[in-house]
């Protein structure tokens, strides 16, 4: 970790008319750090994530990102071409529903290779080799490289989506409920995989989840949101073991113990 933040959010607010999406959210994200945003549904987690990932325009506030040349850049002032380039090279976005993040009608290999072709890779053999390599890393058999994601199970699709995002070696990955809709054993394997990849690649990640177990496993720090506001913010272990706010205490105590 270095002493300069990778992403700096200041007073992010998003209003849907009079309704609050999220309000006055500020934080810094450091290189190699995983930040979890937790809260119940409707608390503004996904709105905040979409604002950070420039998929939504915040009503007010600034988001700055440190590009590879070391400059802190205001995302709202970046041109669209540059922002989209950033999104498909330096960033990744993992959707809750893999169908939103994948091209369902092209093969797994092409799904992984798309970003490479988008940045100018024009050698079929190399693209295929890299794609195969990434499929192996996310534990998808090489014999499935020419199958369409339609033929994949939910867990495989999610892993494919992760591979597709990581192929350009991004520095920051946004994940929106990456384990939502998967059964528990598949969730566990996926979490294991993500944790391994984040560690090996030194990724920074912002993970939105309503599942505190996911936050506990993956994240270093977490923010608890309620009604669009961040009500508690701290190291994951501290927040989960010693919740201060009444709402966080409620959240932690409502985890089912088996």
């Amino acid at each position: 970790m270095t002493d300069a933040p990778l992403l700096r959010a200041r007073d992010i607010s998003k209003f849907y008319g009079a309704r609050i999406g999220c309000q006055n959210v500020s934080f810094d994200l450091w290189p190699g750090e995983v930040l979890a945003i937790v809260g119940e549904s409707g608390s503004g987690k996904t709105t905040l994530l979409n604002c950070l990932a420039t998929r939504l325009m915040p009503t007010s506030g600034t988001i700055e990102y440190r590009t590879r040349d070391g400059q802190m850049r205001d995302l709202a002032r970046m041109g669209e071409a540059e922002r989209r380039f950033l999104m498909r090279t330096d960033w990744g976005f993992v959707h809750q529903n893999p169908a939103d993040g994948l091209r369902m009608t092209v093969s797994a290999g092409a799904n992984v290779g798309e970003r490479l072709m988008a940045v100018g890779e024009r050698h079929y053999g190399n693209i295929r080799e890299t794609a195969g390599d990434w499929l192996r890393r996310v534990e998808i058999g090489i014999d499935r490289i020419d199958d369409q994601p339609r033929a994949f199970s939910g867990g495989m699709r999610q892993r494919l989506q992760i591979a597709r995002n990581l192929v350009t070696a991004p520095r920051l990955v946004f994940m929106d409920e990456p384990t939502g809709g998967l059964d528990v054993s598949v969730q566990a394997r996926l979490l294991d995989l993500v944790r391994g990849l984040v560690h090996d690649l030194g990724l920074s990640a912002i993970i939105v989840t309503h599942d505190l177990a996911v936050a506990r496993l993956l994240s270093h720090r977490m923010m608890v949101m309620k009604d669009g506001h961040v009500i508690e913010h701290g190291l994951t272990d501290r927040v989960l073991d010693d919740p201060r706010e009444a709402y966080t205490q409620l959240l932690v105590s409502s985890i089912l113990q088996v």
């Binding site: 989209r84 093969s107 092409a110 290779g113 798309e114 970003r115 079929y124 693209i127 490289i145």
Partner: peptide
């Protein structure tokens, strides 16, 4: 239209990739 405007033509090669893969 946006892809044309920003010269994002990676997708065109995805089609050709699919051709070769199949």
């Amino acid at each position: 239209r946006k892809m044309h405007a920003l010269e994002e033509y990676g997708l065109m090669h995805v089609k050709l990739y699919e051709d070769i893969a199949r």
